[in-house]
Design a protein around this nucleic acid. Structure first.
Lengths: 225, 225
DNA sequence: TGAATAGTGTCTTTAAGACATTATTTA
DNA sequence: TAAATAATGTCTTAAAGACACTATTCA
């Protein structure tokens, strides 16, 4: 992606998804300037004043164009503007994160595990923007049911717990986790089970219109899973 | 204030303060177009790329220029952008709210009680921006000690409770409130009391560097004080 | 003394933490 | 039967809710 004609304002999108129980972020390699190592960039771009009705439309358009997918949740993290984050001078960027529901079949090219971002070279302040987004998601996981947006259509409570643990970077008590989510009334038990190498697990789906729940207390879990 | 030369991006600031136990917002009357009624506007303006190092600097500069005061807390609420909020077409605005500490002597011109905003005519979407800010502050009052930023240097627990109640628009149990704030360890009891028409009240000040506390549970209070 | 407000005692309630125990499957 | 994971029972703990009660001042 080259620099847009209007350098003042850009939208930056941190797109997240689960893959094999890990959180991945979508990054595109920049046209590498002869060096051996690519520089990776967030999905981003300027507002299209012709077709975008608002900034969230811009976000959706960028995701659609790059990933041909639709996010199940989009949230504005912050808007950052200063003279130092970009070599071209004063730049303003609105940062969003987007959660994609887990779909079985989908290419993993350009997806990178968030636990290994240190090994990549990221453009400008994009690493910081990712960390801001992950921090926001982590905070929300402590007192809302937001991580549900990352789950596939059917899932077990253990899978959901691992999703939360992944985001929160901590170990959660199984009993407390199940009590909390089941009593919130967000889930519907299906009449099917996930069979694996041990006891089969009850499958659930999300009750329509009940994805987001705000709990009255935080859930902590113990440090570093 | 007239329209800036660069209409794309503006910073809008909802400045709040306490006065006689009520929340007030600062609004400036616009050059009225011959009608009898003024249209009021938030403090706002474009970024000054020469002197502002970042957007928060812009906010501080705008507050300083208009009020000759310094906020004790500034928070970005959101960035809104669409083609409909402003008659000139696509506009982007970053909205901040700022809390001013309560100072005894200060003019109240251009300050309006937030409970009576319905009676005023506000420019563009400014009423909505104020409501977004108040909603954010209300949420934060439920699980942080943010409202402390509105208090004067010395205050009683009853005064502090009324500040919270004002923001949360609800009645709070006295015992629960005191337990919560005192056990958070944010306050230092002074060796002086506030004398009034009844039993004198212990005066407190904020412990240095301990203004912001995140509680593990929300505090609710009952509807409409 | 009574009104007003400050401040406390204490029991209840809610929901998370801890952790052991049972249940059901496959190899 | 052993290993693995699912699911539950139940006691403890932390902190808010409810609300009555005492304390101290002024008029």
């Amino acid at each position: 992606m080259t620099l847009a004609a209007e350098p003042l304002f850009s939208v930056e999108v941190v797109v997240l998804r689960l893959y094999q129980q890990q959180l991945y972020v979508y990054l595109t390699p920049q046209a590498s300037s002869s060096s051996t190592e690519s520089i990776y960039s967030l999905i981003n771009g300027p507002i299209d004043y012709e077709c975008d009705k608002n900034i969230e439309n811009t976000v959706k358009r960028l995701i659609e164009a790059e990933l041909n997918a639709e996010a199940s949740y989009i949230e504005q993290v912050k808007t950052i503007g200063n003279a130092t984050r970009h070599p071209d001078g004063w730049m303003v960027a609105s940062v969003y994160y987007a959660l994609l529901p887990q779909l079985a079949t989908r290419s993993m090219t350009n997806w990178f595990p968030v636990k290994q971002l240190d090994k990549l070279s990221l453009a400008y302040d994009h690493l910081a923007l990712i960390h801001s987004s992950l921090r926001r998601l982590k905070d929300k996981a402590q007192y809302t049911s937001m991580p549900l947006h990352l789950m596939p259509a059917e899932f077990t409570l253990s899978e959901l717990q691992r999703c939360f643990e992944n985001i929160m970077q901590s170990y959660i008590q199984k009993k407390a986790f199940r009590r909390r989510l089941l009593e919130a009334g967000l889930l519907i038990a299906l009449d099917r089970e996930r069979r694996g190498k041990s006891r089969p697990a009850q499958l659930y789906r999300i009750k329509r219109g009940h994805i987001i729940h705000h709990f009255s207390r935080k859930m902590f879990g113990k440090a570093e899973e």
